[in-house]
Amino acid sequence: MTLVVQSFAKRYGGLVAVDGVSLTLAPAEVTAIIGPNGAGKTTLINLMSGVILPDGGSMQLFGADVAGATPHVLAEHGLTRTYQSPQLFAEMSVLETVMVGAHLSGRAGFLSAMLRLGAIRREEDELEARARAALSRVGLPDDLLDRNTTDLAYGHQRRVEIARALATGPKVILLDEPAAGLNPKETHEIADLISDLAREGYAVGLVEHDMDMVMGISQHVVVMNFGRKIADGTVDEIQSDPAVIEAYLGTSEGEAAHACVA
């Protein structure tokens, strides 16, 4: 297994946001993490990506114990993510933004960069080629590469973020609500992109509210409610699971409200 999470726990004061959740991500599979609002999905993805520290539990990435590792160490191990609201860099062009994603494949340090020693030019060319490849992989039009990321349309921003994640050369990609704020056509395109990525061998973790999308592209679904995992299985198994139906029916209004905000 690529990524194995065992009984992760996170408490905020008296509130247990994530309560002993275990799950695995496998290569060439989309694993969706779903659940009603406030179920702890975002906390879980933040724990898995090292943004917050777990209070308990363990995580193995390709057999290495990485619970409590910082995000940059996880990225070096091949795990990267995108964010619910795109975390793009203000005042930076699309191409450069994705080149930051390719950072790990370069080696220039402060001094050699300032003195522009020997191999830097070639390295810059390589980083740029890598970034361009990632950008064309997600289908971003070429004429947008010199624009500031923050000037782009929302759908394009989402693609830039995925390209930036791909440029790190990951094996595991965690996507936090990649379809939030997209129109139906864009949602459809992102869904296609995600299932293509899984087909290419990436292990994809997907937190998403759009149930059509989740059921359409996931091989494996983990359902959370009140911080606990209540179900885990294939799409068919999940759709007929009484606990899941209960959880969703019980909060359908909350879901609808969330959908209108998103």
């Binding site: 990225a75 990267t80 080149m99």
Partner: peptide
Amino acid sequence: HSRVGRALRALKGSEVATAGLGID
């Protein structure tokens, strides 16, 4: 105009996202 400069500009924009790309 280097890998290092881009990483610095990135961390100004979003420290969390920058760290998530493998940058210390």
